[in-house]
Structures are given as structure tokens and as C-alpha cells.
């Protein structure tokens, strides 16, 4: 029971003190679970992060579930996940009661017009940052541009097509091209997705930028470097 409570408290703290989600969270997860509590070593954490990047859902939830399960089985994953979710849930739930009235105040309304402009910049920045996660080849570039053009076009002709179909289609193209066609061309490139590069462990100690660059090993072409 004590184990479960410590898991809960640790992930509650992680949920409470990370702003902006995702990668900003990783350095805190690292210092809490690896450096302080020795629940796992840096290599394991990198594996978990690689898995989190490749599975649906927020990275922090994935990390909490995985580490919780490793520590204390199903109940452990439940407590850790609850812990990381609860701070946001409570804070946002409280805010949601005030937001409508809050936005009616003239000055606040103006502030949020500014924030809306900022959100557009933040999203574009996130997109630019994510470019380094993808393979640097023509097929990936074509997929990216196709998704971009299709989404914008459909938005302006007000045609409803869920982006889910684009994601599924992208996965299908990836399966055909990267799984079958390019495998035949270059058999040496088999281990494209190997998440456990020991050199990346130390980078977790640095600022989140350094960590990000090293962590985004998902679709980088390591085969090229090895030649």
C-alpha cells in the first residue's frame, strides 16, 4: 500500500509542476524516478519514452502507466496514472466554472484575443520542432505536404473529413513503403527504430532542448550513419 501511495504522490508532483506538457515533463520524470528513487535506470526510461512516442496518447500518461506497472503491477499503473492526471483535472475543473464570466470582462477579453494570436504561434512552433521526428526522405515529405494541403483545403471548402482517416492512410503508406518496399531495397537498414542509444541517457540531465533532440530518435535514419 505504501508503495502505491508513493507512486501516486510522485506522479501527482510530476503532474502538478509541469507546464506545457510532453517534453517539458521528461526532465522532471527523469529526476524523480531515475535520479532520486532509482525505480529504473536511464536506459529503461529512454525505452519507455520511445514506446510513448510510438503509442497513442499523452507521453506523461504513457510514462506513468508503464513505470507504475513495473513497480507494482496493475494497481501501480492505476495509482501512477491517477496521480499524473489529478492535478490538471482539479485545476482545470475549477477554472472552467469561472472562464465564461471571466471572458466577459472587457479587459480579459482583450487579453484572450492576444492569447489566441499566441496559440497560433505556439502551434506552428510545435510543428517546426516536430519536423526532426520524421524521416528525411521524399516519401515522408510528400506525406507531410499532402496532409497539410488536404487539411487546409478541406477546411476552406467546409468539407467534413476527420483527420483520423489521414492518420490511418499515413500508417498504411508507411507500412507499404517503409515496411515492404524500402526493406527490399536496403536490407541493412533493418534496425531503424532502436530506441536504446546509451549516448542519449546523459542528455536527459541537460535542458529539455538537448534532451528532445536526442530523444527524437523515432524515425531518424540511423542506418545511414552506420555505413
Amino acid at each position: 500500500m505504501k508503495k502505491l501511495l508513493i507512486l501516486f504522490a510522485t506522479f501527482f508532483k510530476i503532474g502538478l509542476f509541469t507546464f506545457g506538457g510532453g517534453y517539458a515533463m521528461l526532465s522532471l520524470i527523469q529526476s524523480e524516478t531515475v535520479t532520486k528513487k532509482h525505480w529504473l535506470d536511464g536506459d529503461e526510461l529512454l525505452d519507455i519514452i520511445a514506446i510513448s512516442e510510438s503509442t497513442p496518447g499523452p507521453i506523461s500518461i504513457n510514462c506513468a502507466t508503464y513505470i507504475g506497472y513495473k513497480r507494482a503491477g496493475f494497481l501501480g499503473s492505476l495509482f501512477a496514472t491517477l496521480g499524473v492526471v489529478l492535478p490538471s483535472f482539479i485545476i482545470i475543473f475549477v477554472i472552467s466554472f469561472f472562464i465564461e464570466d471571466f471572458l466577459k470582462i472587457e479587459l480579459i477579453g482583450k487579453a484572450f484575443k492576444g492569447i489566441q494570436a499566441c496559440v497560433a504561434v505556439l502551434i506552428l512552433r510545435a510543428a517546426v520542432k516536430m519536423i526532426k521526428n520524421i524521416k528525411k526522405d521524399a516519401v515522408s515529405l510528400i506525406i507531410l505536404l499532402a496532409a497539410l494541403v488536404v487539411t487546409i483545403t478541406l477546411n476552406f471548402v467546409a468539407f467534413d473529413l476527420s483527420s483520423i482517416y489521414l492518420i490511418i492512410l499515413g500508417g498504411f503508406v508507411g507500412f507499404i513503403y517503409y515496411g515492404i518496399i524500402s526493406k527490399r531495397e536496403k536490407k541493412t537498414k533493418a534496425k531503424v527504430l532502436d530506441g536504446s542509444d546509451p549516448a542519449t541517457v546523459s542528455s536527459l540531465h541537460n535542458d529539455d532542448v538537448g534532451a528532445e533532440q536526442k530523444l527524437n530518435n523515432g524515425c531518424e535514419d540511423k542506418g545511414e550513419e552506420q555505413k
Partner: peptide, 19 residues
């Protein structure tokens, strides 16, 4: 990993489009 390598560019394209 092949499927993911196809999904990632779609996601980046989607985020660009959203922005």
C-alpha cells in the same frame, strides 16, 4: 516502426495546417 514512420509526417502536416 514502418507504420509509425508513415503516421508521423501526417501528424506534423496536421499541426502545420492547424497553425
Amino acid at each position: 516502426s514502418a507504420v509509425l514512420c508513415g503516421i508521423k509526417p501526417v501528424v506534423v502536416g496536421l499541426i502545420f495546417a492547424t497553425g
